[in-house]
Design a protein around this nucleic acid. Structure first.
Lengths: 201, 201
DNA sequence: ACCTGAACACCGTTCAAGT
DNA sequence: ACCTGAACACCGTTCAAGT
C-alpha cells in the first residue's frame, strides 16, 4: 500500500503512544505487543520502528507519561501542616495507583538501563514530599530531609505494591489506606522524636 | 529416542527445578525458557510438561523455594530486645535480597492467581516480625501488632525494591542499610510513642 | 508408560522491495 | 521518503507418533 505522508512522523508517534497506553489501561502490560499497536493504528509493524528505537524505548515513554500524571496529581495537594500534607500526598499516591493500576504497576518493571531524563521524572515525584520534610524540621540538613522523604516514600510504595497486587476492591483499598496512614504517622512521629532527643548524628 | 525410565518423574521434576533455579541465579528471570531448561537437563520440551502444568506453575515453585530460603535466614536471627531484633531481621532481609537479587526480584513479579499454599509461605516470612511487635507492646491486640508488622515490612521491602533496582555495589548497599534502619527506628519509635500517648483507638 | 519432536500460534526486530 | 510485509530467530504449549 505504502500510503504517503498521510500523517507526519510526529503524528504517528503520538498515535502509537496513545494506542499503546490504551491497551495497557484496558488489558494490562502483558497485552502490549508491536503487532497489536500496529493493527490498532492501521499501520504495519515496521512503521513503529520509524518512531521508536524498540519496544523498550516505547515502554519507557509510556511510563514517562504515567510519572508525569502522578506528579500532576501530587502537585494539586494543598499546602498545609507538613505532617498532614505528607499524609495527603500518600493518600493521593495510593488513589492514583489503585485507580490506574495497570499504568502504575508498569512503571516499576525494571529496565536494563534508565536514561537520565527518565530518572529526573522519578525524582520529581519525590520532590513534593522532600519539601514537606524540610518544613517539618528546618534545623536539619537537606541531605537528612531528602533521606527521610525517600525512605518514607519507598515505604508507602512498598505497601502499595504488596497490597494492591492482592485485594483491589473498595474495602481492600480502605485497609491499605489505613496501613499507609499508620506508616506515615509513626514514621514522622519517630523521626521528629529522634531529632528532638538528639539521637541523630 | 524415548529413553525409558532413566529417571523417575520425581527425579525429572527436581532436575527441572534445579536447572531453572540455576538459570535464574546466573542469568536472571528473562533468560528462563522451557527450551533452555530442556536443553540443560538433556530432555525435550515435552518432558517438562509431564512434571509441571506450565511455565507459570514452574515459576511459582521456584519462587516458593526462594521464600523458604528467606524464611530460614530470618529464623536464624537471635532473639533479643524486640527493636534490635526487628532491625536485625530487616538487615538480613536486605542482605538476602542483594546477594540473591535475581531470585528475590522474581518473587515479586505478580501472577494471575496465587495458590493458598504459596500465600502461606509469604505469610510465614512475616511471622517472625509479627512476634517481635507482639513482644514490643503486649498491651495491644494481635490485630494491631500484625498490622504494624505488615506495614513496616512492606516499607522495608519498598526500600529494597526501589534501591536495589539501581545501585547494587557494596557502597550502595550500605546506603540502603542506613535507609532501612532509619525506617525501622523511626517507625518503631513512633508506633510505641503513639501507643503510650493513647492516640490509638 | 515415557518421551520425542514437529506443529501451531504467537513474539520483537530487520530490511529489501514497492510506491 | 515513507511504508510494507516477508523473513528471521525466537517464545509457550500441544499431541500424534515412536519405542
Amino acid at each position: 500500500m505504502a500510503r504517503r505522508s498521510e500523517h507526519s512522523l510526529e503524528e504517528i508517534r503520538t498515535m502509537v503512544l496513545n494506542a499503546a497506553e490504551a491497551i495497557v489501561i484496558n488489558e494490562g502490560y502483558s497485552a502490549l505487543t508491536v503487532r497489536r499497536i500496529a493493527r490498532e493504528i492501521g499501520y504495519t509493524v515496521g512503521s513503529i520502528y520509524m518512531v521508536f528505537n524498540n519496544m523498550a524505548d516505547l515502554v519507557m515513554h509510556i511510563k514517562a507519561r504515567t510519572l508525569d500524571d502522578i506528579a500532576v496529581q501530587l502537585q494539586q495537594v494543598q499546602d498545609c501542616a507538613p505532617g498532614q500534607c505528607i499524609a495527603e500526598l500518600a493518600r493521593i499516591y495510593l488513589s492514583y495507583a489503585s485507580h490506574n493500576f495497570n499504568q502504575w504497576n508498569m512503571v516499576f518493571v525494571q529496565d536494563a538501563e534508565i536514561p537520565e531524563w527518565y530518572q529526573e521524572k522519578v525524582d520529581h515525584v519525590f520532590s513534593r514530599v522532600e519539601a514537606q520534610f524540610a518544613k517539618l524540621a528546618p534545623q536539619c540538613s537537606a541531605q537528612q530531609s531528602k533521606q527521610a522523604a525517600r525512605v518514607l516514600w519507598s515505604g508507602v510504595h512498598g505497601i502499595c505494591i504488596l497490597s494492591l497486587l492482592g485485594k483491589r476492591d473498595v474495602a481492600g483499598i480502605k485497609d491499605v489506606e489505613n496501613d499507609i496512614l499508620l506508616l506515615v504517622e509513626c514514621f514522622i512521629g519517630g523521626w521528629v522524636g529522634s531529632l528532638l532527643s538528639g539521637k541523630e548524628q
